[in-house]
Amino acid sequence: MPPAMDASKVHDVDPGLLAGWPLPQPGAGGDKELRGHILIIGGSREMPGAIILAATAALRAGAGKLTIATGASVAQLVALAMPEARVIGLSEHDTDGFSLDALASLDPLTDRVDAVLVGPGMRDPASTAHLVHALLPRLADAGVGLVLDACAMDVLLHRPHDASESAPMRFARPVIMTPHCGEMAHLTGIDKDCIVGLPDAPALAAARDWNAVIALKGARTVIAAPDGTLWQHEGAGNIGLASSGSGDVLAGIIAGLLARGASETQAACWGVALHARAGDRLAQRLGPIGYLAREISMEVPALLAQLGNQNTFAAGAAGAAPGGVAMVP
C-alpha cells in the first residue's frame, strides 16, 4: 500500500496515486522466472476464448511465465492460440465443469507459481466452487496470490458440507475478486440497482467480511480492501469497454500484475487504471464503440512503459508531489 493511506477517505486512482505507487520492476538481467509465473484455470467447450483473452492480458501486463489449465476438449485449441503457454487438459463433467480429478494435475503447480486466476470462461458454478475450495488451502500454504473471476466467485455460495451457514465465508488469505454489479447482487442478495447507485458500502462490507480485495466494476469502479481502505476510478464514459470479453481482459491484467509481485490492492488499482486507459486509447483511435476486447491488451505494454517512466521521473524530482505527474494520453 502506498504511504499515508487514510482509510476514512475515498482515494482516486489517478496519475498522482500511480506515480507514488510504482509497480515492482524486474532487473535488467532478470529472466522470465523473476517476472512471475501465473497459472490460469478456466475455459469451457462453449467459451474457450475467455481464457485466451485473460492469458494474453496477463502476459501483456508483464508476467514472465504462463501455464493454462483448461478443459481437455479445448486444450489443443487453446494451445494453438497461445504458443507462449504450457497448456494442461483437465477432465470435464457433462456440465462443462472440471472434476476434482483435476487436482492431480494442479497440485504440483501450487508451489511453483506466483499467482493463480480462476474463472474466465467457466460454466458450472458448483463444480468450479468445489475445485476452488480444494485449492484454497494449498495456495494459502504456498503463499500464492489468487484472483477469482466470473463463476469462480460462487465459491462464496457453494460452501463445503461441514461449513457453518451462520457466518459468511472468509478467506484465510486475502484474494482478489472482480464482480460487476450484477454479480455482486448475486453474491450478496442486495438489489442490483442499489449497488449501481451506491457501490461503496457493499464493496467495503464484502471486503471486510470475505477478507478480499473487491474490484466492483462499473462506470465508476470501486476497489475495497479488507482494512476498510477504498479507492475509486471514474472513467470518462467509455462505453466501448462494456463489451463481451472485457472483464476477462481486466482479470488477466490484474493477475499478471499480481504474479509480478504487486500486492493485491496494488494489482487491483493498477489493473483497473490500465484497463480503462487502454479503452480510452482505442476509443480515440477507432471510435467509442466497436473495438474488441482482444485489442485492449495490446495497449497495455506501452501504457506500462509510459507510467513507469513517469514514476521514475517523479521519484527523482526533488520535492515533487505525488499528484503532480501528468498522465500521457
Rank of each mutant, 00 (worst) to 15 (best):
T178D: 13
S166G: 09
M169Y: 14
A152K: 07
E165W: 12
P137W: 03
L131P: 05
H133T: 10
G145V: 05
G197S: 14
D193E: 14
H158C: 09
H161T: 13
D191F: 06
P168D: 00
P179N: 05
R159K: 14
R138A: 13
L135M: 03
S166N: 13
H180W: 11
P168V: 02
L131I: 09
H180A: 09
A172W: 07
S166P: 02
G189V: 05
A185C: 05
S127T: 11
L187A: 10
K192W: 04
L135N: 00
C151Q: 03
G145S: 14
T188P: 14
R170W: 12
E183A: 06
A167Q: 14
L136Q: 08
V196A: 12
M153A: 02
P179S: 06
L136C: 03
G143F: 02
G189A: 01
P137V: 04
A172E: 14
I190E: 07
L148M: 00
P168Q: 04
G189R: 01
C151D: 15
T128Q: 10
G145K: 15
I190H: 10
R173W: 03
L187M: 09
T188D: 10
G145Q: 15
H158L: 08
V155D: 01
A129V: 05
D162I: 00
G143E: 09
D162M: 04
A152Y: 09
V196K: 12
H180E: 07
T188Q: 11
C194S: 14
D141F: 08
D141E: 14
I176L: 14
I190P: 04
F171R: 05
R173Q: 02
A134I: 01
A150G: 08
P137E: 05
A163Q: 13
G143K: 06
L136S: 02
S166W: 11
C194M: 11
A150I: 09
L136H: 04
A142P: 07
L187T: 11
L139K: 06
L156F: 08
K192N: 11
D149K: 07
C151H: 07
G145D: 12
D162E: 15
C194Y: 09
H158I: 15
D149Q: 01
H133A: 08
I190A: 08
L131H: 02
M184Y: 05
H130Q: 14
A150Y: 10
I176Q: 11
T178F: 12
L139I: 04
I195H: 11
V144L: 10
M169R: 15
A167N: 10
H158D: 13
I176F: 08
D141L: 13
H130D: 14
V144H: 11
S166E: 15
I176Y: 06
R159T: 10
V155S: 03
P168G: 04
L146F: 02
C194W: 08
G182F: 06
L148W: 00
M169A: 13
A134S: 10
G189P: 03
T178G: 13
V144E: 12
L157P: 04
V147Y: 01
A163Y: 11
H158P: 00
P179R: 03
D162H: 11
D149S: 00
